[in-house]
Computed example of a mutant assay.
Amino acid sequence: MTQGHQLIIYTDGSSRGNPGPGGYGAILMWGEKRKELSAGYRLTTNNRMELLAVIKALESLTKKNIALTIHTDSQYVVNSVEKKWLDNWVRTDFKGGKKNKDLWLHYYKLSKEFSIKFKWVKGHADNAFNNRCDELATMAADGKHLLIDEGYEKEAGKLI
């Protein structure tokens, strides 16, 4: 497969405070085509936004059973998937209080529809796509009309 014919996704998540207002950004690239996604949430964590960026990118895809590469600066996301930590968490029902069970289970189900390879990229460095995702995420976190991260707020006991 040539670079131009494989789906390439860049993602990033951000929160202002941890927890605090947060946002995610994603760029999907297929050849010359580009699509940007982002949204902001009133109360969440950085790791939730990193993972939600991946989920929202996958949810936006209409074609299933395709190979794709996701570039992220989140070692939490990369290691959880590539080192098979997630498989163990699912097998043990997130024993020991592993966080973000709602999002991880959603990702786990979605991931079965694709052939996904994660690649870690250094954040806030010289990767233009990662930097753009960071801009999208932070602009979303700083925006008006923030959404509710119900999974986080329920878990934190703060849902109004």
Rank of each mutant, 00 (worst) to 15 (best):
V90N: 05
I27M: 06
E36L: 01
L103Q: 05
K64D: 11
D126F: 10
A39I: 08
G23Y: 09
L37D: 04
S111T: 06
A26G: 06
Q6D: 11
Q75C: 08
A39R: 14
Y107V: 08
Y108R: 07
N127K: 08
L146E: 00
W104H: 01
S74Y: 02
Y107L: 12
K101A: 14
K95A: 15
S14K: 10
N130T: 03
L61R: 09
L58C: 07
W30I: 14
I116F: 01
K117W: 06
A141T: 02
S60T: 08
L105H: 08
D126W: 09
L105S: 13
A26L: 07
R34T: 12
A128T: 15
L52T: 15
M29H: 11
G157S: 02
E50Q: 03
D142G: 12
A137F: 01
I160W: 11
I27F: 07
I148P: 08
K98Q: 13
L61W: 06
S111D: 05
G22Q: 06
L103Y: 05
K98R: 13
K99A: 14
I9L: 04
R16G: 10
L37N: 04
W30F: 12
Q6L: 13
K98S: 04
H145P: 11
F129I: 11
L43Y: 12
N100C: 07
N130Q: 00
K144M: 11
E50D: 06
E155R: 13
M29G: 09
L58W: 06
E153Q: 15
L43I: 12
E135M: 12
L105E: 15
K101H: 07
A156C: 10
Y152Q: 02
M29D: 10
S60N: 12
Q75A: 12
W89A: 04
V77N: 00
L51W: 10
S60H: 10
W104M: 07
H71C: 11
K117V: 15
T45M: 00
R91A: 15
L103I: 05
M29P: 10
H124S: 02
W104N: 04
R48M: 03
T11A: 05
L28H: 00
G40P: 07
R132F: 01
D12V: 04
A57L: 05
W85L: 04
G31K: 06
L68T: 03
G13S: 01
T138K: 13
D87K: 15
Q3I: 15
K35Q: 15
R48P: 00
G23I: 08
A53I: 00
D12S: 01
A128R: 12
D149E: 04
E50P: 00
G143P: 04
S14H: 12
N88P: 08
G13R: 00
L159E: 09
G143R: 00
L146Y: 03
T69Y: 06
V81L: 09
V90C: 02
A125Q: 02
K101C: 10
F114P: 02
S80Y: 08
Q6P: 08
E113C: 12
T62R: 13
F94R: 01
T2E: 13
G123A: 01
N79K: 15
S38V: 07
N127Y: 03
K144L: 11
M49G: 02
G4R: 11
E32I: 11
D12H: 01
E36W: 05
S60V: 04
K154P: 10
Y41G: 01
L146Q: 03
N131Y: 06
R132H: 09
E36I: 03
M1C: 11
N130P: 04
G96L: 05
L43T: 09
S15E: 08
E59G: 03
E82Y: 08
Y24Q: 02
